[in-house]
Design a protein around this nucleic acid. Structure first.
Length: 308
DNA sequence: AAATCTTCCAACCGCGCTGTC
DNA sequence: CGACAGCGCGGTTGGAAGATT
């Protein structure tokens, strides 16, 4: 039987979130913690489906979210990880705890894919190399698809001319000038301010239910990661990741827990590595994976002409 | 100044996975 | 063990903003 869409019930609101809704959601999460999303609409009176509430929290209201321009360092990391993991945005996002998977996915689709395509003509992209016979990597699944065939030189030129992402500018004040409702780009962008204002409160957040059901068991959810508060990956840790040469502990798949642990504990080897070792499993890296993890690749990437 | 084109991203949709009963 | 509920993920889309003509 078919699954009933969760958001097609009558009375369920869709579209951009209003400030009032954000405040309601925030105060609820502040009291109860980011879990049990099913109960959120019922307990708050929000005319949103649970999924929408979770998404709103995860992508915008969650404290500590960094918005705006991606740094070259982040860019490099994303390129690396995308090549290694494929379009596993959640896994990739686990390395950039202040970025959401949605953000990374958008950035990849709008910037990096074009950048790589343009800079690596002749179909010699990292991923395409991965498709060569004898090389195996999950990332060989589609990236850099030809969906940008529609892009012509003019578009690329236009892209290059663009200077700064408009959404990064503060437009919260614009909201007051709108008559009916905020535009998605005006109010929703102002959410970053909400997030910023609330940055502190999750330092001692309500404890996540350790038995919280849900979801796949691929590791900590973004909320859980968030709840680690100051344990978010620091710049130093990120750099440490980029210098991670001891690649033997890097799991072959996109397992978020394993990959995250690999970084968090890269000094004493990853938990997943221990797990695997405990099981007597080997985690051999293919030549390509080693190649991908080699920071020199990132350096190469950084030599690419910036269009941002 | 207006019309058109292009880019960007917040939000939605559908599916898969896991836990519970 | 199957049905169901809940959550998370990746792909896609709608529409606003900015750029160009």
């Amino acid at each position: 039987m078919g699954r009933r869409p969760c958001c097609d019930q009558p009375g369920i609101k869709k579209g951009p979130w209003m400030p009032e809704e954000d405040i309601i959601l925030l105060s609820y999460v502040q009291q109860h913690g980011p879990r049990n999303w099913r109960s959120v609409p019922a307990n708050t009176g929000l005319l949103r489906c649970s999924k929408s509430c979770r998404l709103r929290w995860t992508n915008y209201l969650r404290p500590g979210i960094k918005r705006g321009n991606f740094t070259p360092h982040e860019e490099e990391l994303i390129i690396h990880l995308q090549a290694l993991l494929g379009n596993k945005w959640a896994a990739i996002a686990s390395y950039l705890p202040k970025r959401t998977d949605n953000d990374i996915k958008n950035y990849w689709n709008t910037h990096l894919k074009k950048k790589l395509k343009k800079s690596l003509p002749g179909a010699t992209t990292v991923v395409e190399r991965a498709k060569e016979p004898g090389l195996s990597i999950e990332a060989s699944q589609g990236s850099l698809k030809d969906d940008e065939n529609k892009d012509n030189d003019r578009k690329l030129l236009l892209t290059a001319r663009r200077t700064s992402p408009p959404a990064s500018s503060s437009v919260a004040s614009n909201y007051g000038n709108k008559l009916a409702r905020p535009t998605s780009a005006t109010y929703t962008s102002s959410a970053k301010n909400i997030s910023k204002l609330l940055e502190g409160w999750m330092r001692c957040p309500p404890k996540s239910n350790p038995n919280s059901s849900g979801g796949n068991s691929q590791g900590p959810t973004k909320d859980e990661e968030c709840n680690k508060g100051d344990d978010l990956m620091s710049q130093e840790e990120l750099e440490s990741m980029m210098k991670l040469k001891d690649a033997k502990d890097v799991p072959r798949d996109g397992n978020r827990k394993g990959m995250a642990n690999c970084i968090e504990d890269n000094e004493s080897k990853s938990a997943i590595g221990k797990e695997q070792k405990a099981k007597g499993e080997q985690l051999p890296l293919s030549f390509l994976e080693k190649w991908l993890l080699d920071e020199s690749v990132g350096e190469e990437m950084m030599k690419l002409p910036s269009i941002i």
